[in-house]
Amino acid sequence: MHARHLPPSDLRCLPVAYPVTHQIEVVRPGVNRRFKSIHVRGNQIPQAHRATIGGAELTALERTLIDVARSYNLDVSVPMIDDALHRELTTRETILTTLAHCLEKRNGSKVRLAIGLADARRESPAEAVAAVRFNEHGITGLEPQVTVRADSLNRDIRVDFCHRRARLIIEIDGIGKLYLGSGVPRQELEAERRRLNRCRIPHRC
């Protein structure tokens, strides 16, 4: 019986920050082989780490997140863990419990780092990748999705990251924002420019 890794873009729609492989990964104990479109891993998968969805036996969500973190870079694994936590599909404690019962110990510290960097408050893969980059450069103290008070506007503004001591706000922008709201890129670009200008006005976070 084979246990297949859950395709990130399939059943649970875990985000893929950027393409890393075109191969489907399958698990077959005792066999390690690569084919053109399939990568067979010889891992031992406990029954508790398996799930059956649509008639196919897959690795359970927590085990999938762990296996991705074990095999790929942080900027691939952290967005997936963030998304699963944000959507309340699992918890950090459940993932750590699953990790403790994995027979495979390869890259354990890398997996724990990915779990430690994950944060349910982040709302997009881009924010998760930014958090990974902050960590790589030793930047700490940035809180995700913070509501700040803009006194000059007499309103609250929610920002992607805020460093309270440094009074620094960081916004993560992507081209997708230009197609939200009105759906007219020119209008959305102008609206985003006005929002960023408001963020530059001194306020309390």
Rank of each mutant, 00 (worst) to 15 (best):
H2C: 10
P7G: 02
S9G: 04
D10L: 11
D10W: 07
R12N: 00
C13S: 13
C13L: 11
L14V: 06
P15V: 04
P15S: 04
V16A: 04
P19N: 09
V20W: 08
T21M: 06
H22N: 11
V26F: 00
R28L: 11
G30T: 02
R33E: 10
R41G: 13
R41H: 15
N43R: 15
N43K: 13
Q44V: 15
Q44F: 14
A48L: 12
A51W: 07
I53D: 13
G54K: 03
L58K: 00
T59W: 00
L61I: 01
L61Y: 05
E62F: 01
T64H: 03
L65P: 06
I66R: 04
D67F: 00
V68F: 12
N73K: 14
N73S: 15
D75W: 04
S77Y: 05
M80F: 07
M80P: 10
A84G: 09
R87V: 05
E88V: 10
E88K: 13
L89M: 14
T97Q: 14
A100F: 13
A100I: 07
H101E: 11
H101I: 07
C102S: 11
E104I: 05
N107Y: 06
G108R: 05
S109P: 02
R112K: 10
L113W: 00
A120E: 10
R122V: 03
E123K: 08
E127I: 11
A130F: 12
V132F: 08
V132Y: 04
R133I: 14
H137D: 09
G138L: 03
G138M: 04
I139R: 15
G141A: 11
E143F: 09
T147L: 05
V148M: 07
V148F: 01
A150G: 11
S152P: 02
S152K: 09
N154C: 10
R155S: 11
D156I: 02
I157W: 08
V159N: 03
R164V: 05
R165V: 09
A166V: 01
I169S: 07
I169T: 11
I169Y: 02
I169D: 03
E171V: 00
E171N: 03
I175A: 14
Y179R: 10
Q187P: 04
E192P: 03
R198G: 15
C199P: 02
P202Q: 00
H203P: 07
